[in-house]
């Protein structure tokens, strides 16, 4: 094929800036979620924080790294690495429930500690 007819995706400046501001807003949101005493979600906390991080990562991958407009195969390479990472982490975490007794004791201890002071 002649190189006269190929096309490159050029991201528009307003899109790049909008992505940046969305990323900053999500960073502020995750700091507020992670540090505010008003918003306490308990065990959900880490998942909410990870969900926000994943939204941010997707924005960077799709727009800054051009995956949204790129050849599908480049995205397949990245996603397959993430799938294998998921399998790896999942396998390694399979025995975590064996430590539940210790964690339960810790949670009870925390409640005993935090109960009176309420901090």
């Amino acid at each position: 094929m002649s190189h006269a007819d190929h096309k490159h995706h050029v991201a528009s400046l307003p899109l790049l800036w909008a992505t940046f501001f969305a990323l900053v807003a999500l960073t502020v949101l995750t700091v507020v979620m992670g540090t505010s005493d008003q918003i306490q979600l308990g065990w959900l906390d880490v998942w909410v924080v990870l969900f926000i991080a994943t939204v941010k990562a997707s924005l960077v991958a799709l727009i800054f790294m051009h995956l949204a407009a790129d050849k599908l195969f480049n995205g397949v390479v990245l996603v397959s690495a993430l799938v294998f990472m998921g399998i790896f982490l999942g396998m390694c975490l399979m025995d975590s429930s064996n430590y539940l007794a210790e964690q339960q004791a810790y949670v009870e201890g925390q409640q005993a500690l935090l109960g009176p002071t309420g901090s």
């Binding site: 007819d5 096309k7 050029v10 528009s12 307003p14």
Partner: peptide, 9 residues
């Protein structure tokens, strides 16, 4: 070209 999404050579 500033907001174009495709830039043709």
């Amino acid at each position: 070209m500033s907001t174009a999404t495709e830039h043709s050579h």
